[in-house]
C-alpha cells in the first residue's frame, strides 16, 4: 500500500492507503477526523465537502492518492479551540442546523462560496451556490440566513486581520 502524505488542517500527516481509498475514507478512517461525513454515493449531497488547496471539493469523489502533497482543510480545521470561525458562529446564531449531519459540508461550502463570491451574498446567489449540498432538516431557510450573515462576518474577520 502506498504511503500518502498531506497537510491536513495545517499539520503534516501520512498514512498507508490502497489506491482505491477515497479521500473521505482516508480522512475518516486513517486520520480519524470524523467530522467529514458521507451522505450519498453519487456526488450530490455534499456532506463530504472539504477544501483541497483552497477549493471546496467532494472528498467522496476524490482518491486519497490523488491528493498526495495537497493542503486539505476539514471542518475540524476551521475553529481555533473554542474560537469559532465566523461561518460556524453564524450557523449557530441563526439555527442553520438541526441534526448536524450535513452541517460540516454546508459550512465548508459556505466558506468557499464567500471566498469566491464575496461578502455580500443575495438569497438567490446563496440558494444557487448550495446546489451541491443537501439538507433534510432545515428546509434551508435558516441555512440561507446563516450563510448571508457568516459572509458579512467574514468580512469583519478579514478587516480585523488587516
Amino acid at each position: 500500500m502506498p504511503m500518502i502524505h498531506m497537510t491536513v488542517n495545517g499539520k503534516a500527516v501520512k498514512g498507508h492507503a490502497e489506491p482505491r481509498t477515497l479521500l473521505v475514507e482516508f480522512i475518516r478512517d486513517t486520520l480519524r477526523l470524523t467530522g467529514t461525513h458521507v451522505g450519498c454515493d453519487t456526488s450530490q449531497c455534499g456532506a463530504c465537502v472539504v477544501h483541497v488547496d483552497g477549493h471546496a471539493i467532494k472528498s467522496c469523489t476524490t482518491l486519497a492518492v490523488a491528493c498526495e502533497g495537497a493542503h486539505v482543510t476539514t471542518i475540524e480545521g476551521l475553529a481555533h479551540g473554542t474560537d469559532l470561525h465566523p461561518m460556524q458562529e453564524a450557523f449557530r446564531e441563526h439555527h442553520g442546523l438541526q441534526c448536524g449531519y450535513c452541517t460540516p459540508g454546508m459550512i465548508m461550502s459556505a466558506v468557499d462560496m464567500v471566498n469566491r463570491k464575496g461578502h455580500d451574498l443575495s438569497e438567490h446567489t446563496i440558494r444557487e451556490e448550495l446546489e451541491g449540498n443537501i439538507c433534510r432538516c432545515t428546509g434551508y431557510h435558516n441555512i440561507v440566513k446563516a450563510v448571508a450573515a457568516g459572509a458579512k462576518a467574514m468580512q469583519g474577520m478579514a478587516k480585523a486581520a488587516e
Binding site: 456526488s43 469523489t61 446546489e131
Partner: peptide, 9 residues
C-alpha cells in the same frame, strides 16, 4: 455544470 464542488474538479 454540476455544482461548485464538481466544477472545482
Amino acid at each position: 455544470i454540476g455544482d461548485p464542488h464538481v466544477r472545482h474538479r
